[in-house]
Write a protein that binds this DNA or RNA. Sequence first.
RNA 1: GCGCCUCUAGCUCAACGGCAGAGCAACGGACUCUUAAUCCGCAGGUUCUGGGUUCGAAUCCCAGGGGGCGCACCA
Length: 503
Amino acid sequence: MSTDETGPAGSVPGRLEREAVGNGTSPPAGAAPGSGSPVIPYRFPDTTPLGEIVERFGALDPGVSTGVEVRVAGRVLAHRPQGRLAFSTLADWTGSLQLFAGAGFTEDFGELVRSRVGDWIGAEGEVVTTKRGELSIRVARWSLLARAARGFGDKWHGVQDPDARYRHREVDLWANEGPRAALLARSRVVSTLRRHLEGRGFVEVETPILHPLPGGATARPFVTHHNALRSDLYLRIAPELYLKRLVVGGFERVFELGRVFRNEGLSPRHNPEFTMLECYQAYADYRDMMELVEQLVAAAAVAVVGGTALSYQGRSLDLTPPWRRATMAELVGEAHGCTIHLEDRPHLESLARGAGIPVRGEWGSGKLLLELYEKTVEGTLWDPVHVCDYPAEVSPLARPHRSEPGLVERFESIVAGRELVNAFSELGDPEIQRRNFEAQAAARAAGDDEAMLVDEDYLFALEHGLPPAGGLGLGVDRLVMLLTDTANIREVIAFPTLRPLGP
RNA sequence: GCGCCUCUAGCUCAACGGCAGAGCAACGGACUCUUAAUCCGCAGGUUCUGGGUUCGAAUCCCAGGGGGCGCACCA
C-alpha cells in the first residue's frame, strides 16, 4: 500500500466496505477490488464558487449554451439519474448549481450515475441552461473527491433529533438549512466586533486561560491540575483582572475575544464554555461604555441582518442607538408603583416578600434591591435598556458612584429580557478593592462558593495606578442568538457541550 | 441537582396489550430534460438498556442511560 500513489482511499476498497456499517451501504458492484475503483485525486484546484456562477449568469432563457467552460467542486445534495441523462444538485458553501450529464458527452457517465447523495464531486464543463431553463453545468469530465459511506438523513426532513444534530454536527450542517447560516453569522459577528474595536484604536490581547485563582466574576470554576508545578489551576471564569493589569501596564485600549468557562448548569441559554468580549478603555467611564455597546451591537446587526430593526422569536426588536437608560431603582419603582430608596430596608423587604422572594437575614438592602430587580423586572424588559447604578455590595470590581452613596457606576444592557452586557467605571482604588475582596472572601467562608477570593497580584497591580477606565463584557453567543433569531445557545455553537456517551 | 416529556429501520414517523409497518435513503433494474424525478424489484429491527406484570409487552410498572423543556444557578 505504501507504494500506491492513489493512497488508502483509492487502493483499499475493502476498507470502505468494512467501515460502511451505518446504513448498510457498500461500494457499487463495479468497484470491486482490482476492477477500477475510482482514484481520488490529492487536489482539485482552480474551481469557481457555485454562487459566483449563479450570480454571473442569473436568469437565461431555456436551452442556452454560453460557451463558458468552468471547473467546480462540491457535495451532491440530490441525484436524479434518468437513463442516458442524469441531473444532480451540487452544493458548495457559496450556493448550489445543477450538474447535467449525459452518456453522449460525459466521461465515465456510468460511474457518475452511481454516485450518491453526500459524495463530493469535482466537475468540468460548459455553463448551459436545460430545456426547462435551469442553469446547469454540462459535465464533460468529472472526478469523485470523496465517497459518503453514510447517509445525510431524510430528503425532506433532514435530521431532526437534537441529540443527533449536536453530536454529529457535520451531518446537521448538510442536512438542515439553519445551522450553517447561524455559524456563518457568528463568524461575521466576531469579525465585525474585532474590526470595529480596532477602528477605535483598541488592541487585541490574549491573557491566560489557566488561572491560579479564579477571578473577575462570581461563578464556580473548572479545576485542573498541572503536574510539573504540582498545583491546581482554574479555567478562567473571566479575563477581567488580567486585562486591567494590562491597562495598568500602559495598554490604554485593550480587548480580548475569547472563551470563558463556568462550572454551572446547562440550559438553552447557558453553555459551560462561552465566548465573551471584554474591553477596557482608559480615561473613559461607564457612560462611554454605553455608547460603545450600542455601536458594537448596531454594527454586528447591520453585518448579519442588514439593519438594526429585527424580529426575535416572533416579536420586533429595535437595536437602533441610543438605547434607553434607567437606574435599577427607577425600574423597580416603576414595576411596583412606588419610589425606591436604598436606605429604606423595611420597604425593600416588604416588596421582596410581596414578590415571593425568600429573604435571607444576611442580605443587605443592596442585595434586596438586586433580587427585586432580577425577579420582577429583568425578564420584562424587551427593547434594549442600560440598567444603571447597581448596589455596591453586589459589585466588588466597580467604582463607587460619583454622587449616589451605596451605589456603583455599573450597568447591564438587557435585550429581550436577558443580560447581554455587564460594564462599569472600573474600580482603581487598591484599598477599596482590598476591602471588597475581603468582604467577598468572608461571604465565601460563610458558604457562598461563588464569591471571589483576595487576589494579591491584582491588588499589587492596582497599587501602581489604574487610570480612570471604563470596561465592558459582552456575551457573544447571546448576541449571535439575537441576530439569528435562535432560542437555544447550542444552535450558535458549532460543538456544544453534551454529556459523553458510554459507560 | 430537582420536576415533566421523550427514545421504534441509516433518516422522518406509524403501530399504543394481540403477526413490528410506511415514506425517504441504500441496494438491483427500466427510463435522453429532471427538480422531493418517476416506475418495478430487493433488503433492512437488541422497538435505548436491565428487570417486572401478563397467556401475550414497542405498548403497562420499576430501575438505569441519552435527549428536550421548565426550575435552581448564571452570562
